[in-house]
């Protein structure tokens, strides 16, 4: 299984709906400073509910909505494929600004879902906040800088 496509709409610096295809194997993402590379990684963490808004460099969730246009919603969809070309799983998350704050909706295989249901499904495939498969910019030495107890807890999660 691997990520076959990410559909980003109005999330951070992606003002226009953007589909990014991915293949198996080893892909690098490159471009000038400030061009939006880390925002792609942030979009995966946001969509799969693997991190809080604070770690996405946004104080509040609505800072994740693109500021270049008046639309007050943003969404990210991550599609997985199991190598045969067929899509076998997709997760989508949408946030919308409302007068009372904002709403966050999750979709599993295009049907309304909850974060818990999505986390259950993802952990069947070994995708969980604790398995360190996503490393944000500047985070690489964090495993060394955390306390010995927190480091042990990584093994607790996996066991």
């Amino acid at each position: 299984m691997h990520i076959s496509k990410i559909e980003i709409d109005n999330f951070k610096s992606f003002a226009n709906p953007t589909d990014i295809p991915f293949l198996q194997g080893f892909t690098t993402v490159s471009g000038p400073n400030g061009s939006g590379k880390s925002n792609i990684i942030d979009s995966i963490l946001f969509c799969l509910g693997l991190s809080s808004s604070k770690t996405l460099r946004a104080d509040r969730l609505f800072h994740l909505i693109n500021t270049h246009n008046k639309k007050n919603e943003a969404s990210v969809k991550v599609c997985f494929s199991n190598g045969t070309g067929q899509e076998n799983l997709s997760v989508k998350r949408k946030i919308k600004k409302t007068s009372a704050g904002f709403i966050s909706n999750y979709y599993l295989n295009d049907k309304t879902s909850t974060l818990n249901e999505i986390h259950d499904e993802l952990s069947k495939h070994n995708i969980s906040p604790g398995c360190y498969n996503v490393m944000m910019q500047g985070d690489v030495t964090s495993i060394i800088n955390i306390s010995a107890t927190e480091r042990r807890k990584i093994i607790d999660e996996i066991a």
């Binding site: 951070k12 000038p32 400073n33 400030g34 590379k37 880390s38 460099r57 946004a58 104080d59 800072h63 500021t67 270049h68 910019q137 500047g138």
Partner: peptide, 13 residues
């Protein structure tokens, strides 16, 4: 670019 919030800037910026 438009004026940015400091927190949302990239590492290079």
């Amino acid at each position: 670019k438009k004026m940015q919030r400091l927190e949302s800037m990239s590492g290079g910026e």
